[in-house]
Design a protein around this nucleic acid. Sequence first.
DNA 1: AAAAATACCGAGTGTTAACTCAGTTTTACT
DNA 2: AGTAAAACTGAGTTAACACTCGGTATTTTT
Lengths: 200, 200
Amino acid sequence: MTRKESILQAATVLFSQKGYKETSTADISGLTNVAEGTIYYHFHNKEKLFLSVLERTREMIIEEFESYMENRHFRDGMEMIENAVSFYMYLAGKMENQFLLLHRHYPYQMALTLPSCRENLEAIYDCLIDIFEEGVLMGQKDGSIAKMPPRKTALIIFSMVDGVVRFKTYNLYDASALFNDIIVSCRKILATDHHYEEGA
Amino acid sequence: MTRKESILQAATVLFSQKGYKETSTADISGLTNVAEGTIYYHFHNKEKLFLSVLERTREMIIEEFESYMENRHFRDGMEMIENAVSFYMYLAGKMENQFLLLHRHYPYQMALTLPSCRENLEAIYDCLIDIFEEGVLMGQKDGSIAKMPPRKTALIIFSMVDGVVRFKTYNLYDASALFNDIIVSCRKILATDHHYEEGA
DNA sequence: AAAAATACCGAGTGTTAACTCAGTTTTACT
DNA sequence: AGTAAAACTGAGTTAACACTCGGTATTTTT
């Protein structure tokens, strides 16, 4: 692994676990056995390093999600959303540090003054919410999902799932224990009145 | 207003808007026209000041919520939850800074090493989720809410609402635009199969 | 193999921020 | 009014941190 790569990895871990301000370039240097000067050689300054971490995070999350969705076939919109929800929860566990980074307030604060930061965050959320919205639209065509505003519905489903993941992040409650209940709640929110299914 | 009080207020604003590490005692001193020494006279150090802010936040949120709930009468459990949800969204706007503080990762990190910090956070979430749980239990008795695990259901409702509030916090989406949709979704999650109401 | 370009190093620098403390002002009490 | 206690002040101290820079090692090119 190149030094540049190991700096990025260590920065991802430390920025997410300790926070941006709480992580010093000396910390990163110590964790990687790469001299501090090298960090500045590759990333110019700490802020740009953070942006690189965020950009990498965006690439990884979007790629993971799109490759999951595209090579798959769903019976109907409802099934698509159920799958998207469970994949989101799976991914939040697999890419723990990246999701933790997104659950910190720092990136959103940086986004207020740094357009490139905001672009990365918006790209991630747009990608995720677009997938949910697509599922709603598909479900409304095939009759598995009731008529309701697609974008808003996607946002609500997303915030429900993300909120539960956050409980885990905050060490308040174990998200995986709520997995089934989340899926059931999604179905209830989306179900059409007549053909109401309750599976386990 | 006493100096101690104005320090607490300024600290609440700055810690929530800028972050803990990003706020210096000089910042607080500047905003209050109180000398830095005075901050240390009253709070001993920056960490203890933060804890005082958090304790105050806990007191205020719990008091607001309990006084809202206790002087009120609900037709059934469903109505109680609807009211709790809308009051939560109202309060998140009214006490913007305190909620922002709770939406930052810092307090949860501090909670890992500082039991008194964890106690404050748990007290807040316990209070809120207890209220939702109580609503579920009530609704299951009076028939307005379906049979489902009360605690888990309360957690899901809570994370849905809190997740939407967070969109606002992060400047990604305006929570108030989703208000009606949230209420409708809650009803759908909770409703009994037979007596399914859909109001506006 | 020599030269050029790239990657890397870590001691040094300037700044910032938490916290202290010796002294001053205000309040409380007799 | 006089005195003791509490509240307050801000210059000074110390440590940590982001970043620089002159020099060295490594890789690439010719």
